[in-house]
Design a protein around this nucleic acid. Sequence first.
DNA 1: AAACTAGCCAACCGCGATTAG
DNA 2: TCTAATCGCGGTTGGCTAGTT
Length: 283
Amino acid sequence: MGRSPCCEKDHTNKGAWTKEEDDKLVSYIKSHGEGCWRSLPRSAGLLRCGKSCRLRWINYLRPDLKRGNFTLEEDDLIIKLHSLLGNKWSLIATRLPGRTDNEIKNYWNTHVKRKLLRGGIDPTTHRPINESKAPRDSPKSRETEDPIVKFFSFSPQMEKKESFGGERNYQEGLICKKERVEYPVVEEKCLDLNLELRISPPWQDQQHHDETKLRFGTEKYRCNACRFGVGNGKECSCSDVKCQIEDSTSSSYSSSDISCSVVGYDFLGLNTSVLDFSSLEMI
DNA sequence: AAACTAGCCAACCGCGATTAG
DNA sequence: TCTAATCGCGGTTGGCTAGTT
């Protein structure tokens, strides 16, 4: 019973990929598309395991990969996302277009981790090292002290009473300037983060963008799932009014004015408007 | 110039979840 | 419903390169 084996392990190459293998893989995927990694090696004439092909494509050959050094913005974003998601590299990668989970993971282990440690930040907890060693007390104190909790302990839709001030503070790690701001605290929200994550790139797939624009004459009419790549595993039909109406994360719109630009999306289980990480102050 | 060390990163390994039969 | 393969992910490793002694 069950499926047939994915590959004959005795007859597969291992180790570094050659230019010829790369070419074969690229040209095969270009003409047949991604998917069915099991049968791909044989079809493409490669003596590789499907798993190996997939890895090579995703981490190295994909045309949309961004090469070169990480920018400061990417750096910050990685730290922020890691503080929220931990070692969920694939999820983090979805927020960094052109970067792969492997690349981010490597970057984290070789650069960011060290940088945080130098600054006295525990890269695992994202808290000052001294504090990380100390036993945690009550949930209440966590709510008031944990910068991550602080960040999510307010609704971004609430009006700011004061503009952000404050200074970058390495020792404090991801210290939110928001502690200086009077925000009504939305109780308990962050203590029980819904980690059924619906997180995805903030960027817009160009083709999708073009198609939508062509259809509506504007990119305005896009559901959140599409706008943010948040599909929740459901098939996207964003160009349909139906889809827009079913967009459960919408906060307010009328049928005559459906605009994703005013609609929130569900990030970490929090209904919120667009989450702008640039508003998070970090190192 | 040679030996050693540290950093980097592509690729492998093993595991859990999902899915085909 | 069960079994086994596939897929995707995170952790780890090994080889290459650059810098230092």
